[in-house]
Design a binder for these strands. Sequence first.
DNA 1: GTTGAGCGTT
Length: 301
Amino acid sequence: MSELYIRVAEDENEEPMEIPSEDDGTILLSSVAAQFPGACGLRYRNPESQCMRGVRLVEGVLHAPENDWGSLVYVVNYPKDNKRKMEEIDAASAVKVKRGFQKTSDLIVLGLPWKTTEQDLKDYFTTFGEVIMVQVKRDVKTGNSKGFGFVRFTEYETQTKVIAQRHMIDGRWCDCKLPNSKVFWAFPDEPMRSRKIFVGRCTEDMTTDELRQYFMQYGEVTDVFIPKPFRAFAFVTFADDQVAQALCGEDLIIKGISVHISNAEPKHNNIHQLFPNFPGGSASLAAMFDRSQYQFPSSHV
DNA sequence: GTTGAGCGTT
């Protein structure tokens, strides 16, 4: 089948971007979210009624109205919670943005093939934006890659985009995340509630992509983890803790199966394991945690 | 079969 693209924009008057469809003519919500992080659906203006209409969304798959996408421009939907949250954050972050708060940080790149070099990393990540630094971590004695590395971009926008998607590097899927050493500091004045949910009663045929596509309808998904070998559960992390908390206790139907959602319990909560190199030593870190309202950042939990 | 990999010699 010939490749079909539909035109999608953040606003009716904005420059649209072309998003690829699947072989069956549907569009994956994840394809939309790859360009518009946080997207939870699409809408369009019905030419007859001039009203906005929602595009049918079933488990992360968007279906063409009347089985034909036509030449309309589709507009991205974002979760209501995100919008409200964005407005709240806007006021607070306007100051930070002016101060250059949205500075980039090193991102850890996990799952690299052993053969991948720093030049390979640079070549790959430059396709997203200007790269300031790449590293492949190696065993000091043997020089063998440890299978992970770091990258840093000039633009914060590039960083956001890179974190939001998976990366095929030299034939392996890799993830880019804020490194553990940075997560704690990334949200200095937000109390840390859990952004991560436990998904019980999963079946073996549920893939990380399918879970991501399914949960995207509730809010921006930043991580999906399925333990291997199969253990009938998974973890899904949202960008927004309110989205995660709202789902806890629910039974949801995924691929016809009822799964149960609950809070993710802490993996380890040994702060010395998490921050072994805390400036001033781990005793001062422990004291700080005792006094603090913070819980562990969800990517540690 | 309901609680998870891996995190940086500076």
